[in-house]
Amino acid sequence: MNVLSSLVVVLALILVVYLGVDKAGLTALFGTVLPYVAIVLFLGGFIYRILYWAKSPVPFRIPTTCGQQKTLPWIKPNNFDNPHNGFGVFVRMVLEVLFFRSLFRNTRTQIVKDGPKVGYASNYWLWFLAIAFHWAFLIVFVRHLRFFTEPIPEWILGLQAVDGFIEYGVPVFYITSVLLVVGVAGLLVRRLFSSQLRYISLLNDYFPLFLILGIALTGVLLRHYVKTDIVSVKEMTMGLISFSPVNPEGVHVMFYIHFFLVTCLFAYFPFSKLMHLGGVFLSPTRNLANNNREVRHINPWNPKVKLHSYAEYEDDFRDKMVAAGIPVDKE
């Protein structure tokens, strides 16, 4: 149900832009107005969300410790899985953000019937798909900066060259295009075929997958199968970035579809779970040092509570304490 609706939404988006551009000629709307709106929504929404999170304090220092703590000098602490200083936290975050350290730990649990035993198998699939997808997407994104720079910086060209190292096809296929499609499709398949995952998945989970799959596939189509006037496209993208938008003739509708889906992704981003991109940096179970007993952590709203003082306690039980020969403050 959620799967279908998400797919339908993405197909509807494609239909809208197709009709809008191809039939109604609304190139300015899809080529200029909506992209600007989306960027404003993206930046505004992103900043708003970060501020919304940052506004709430971190009342307690609650890292999830995944390695040996620092105590006695002869016990080797694991500073990357259980950081006790800023450097450790930095490394932990780098491992988490760039290499998905926690996902790498993933295991699959199953009941082995004859035994009876609970078994745990390493399960790197999720990690692999996630890493392939995220890294490929990042590199694809960076590669696209060639449409927004003139002259194109050396390093982008270099990245492109490396990415196309297999030198297959004209123009060459990029390895990241393949990984991106494989990654997204894999994550989608995984979500569809595991009954548990299907049970917890929402429209909000399928939609971005279909959307990004749409972006990736239209991108591949554009590069390899649909001939569009690349010079006009660049004219258009440079116009956008320099705030003097143009909508040249000869740009294929497939480009508009690709471009509009990206527009949608930008606009959707800050209002969705995709904000985990920002959230991962702010997660208090990961970004704090486990030095609780060494440095006091201050809670700005430390609750005021009623206490049962020692004096009250002694008043309650003095007779019994005296009778048992336990020292008291007031005889």
Partner: peptide
């Protein structure tokens, strides 16, 4: 609690339902 705990906000907003935690 949303105002008092950043953890609560982040944990409410960031889950992608990847299921890595499911069988843990």
């Amino acid at each position: 609690r949303l105002d008092k705990y950043r953890s609560f906000k982040i944990f409410m907003d960031c889950c992608v339902r990847c299921g890595a935690c499911a069988d843990k």
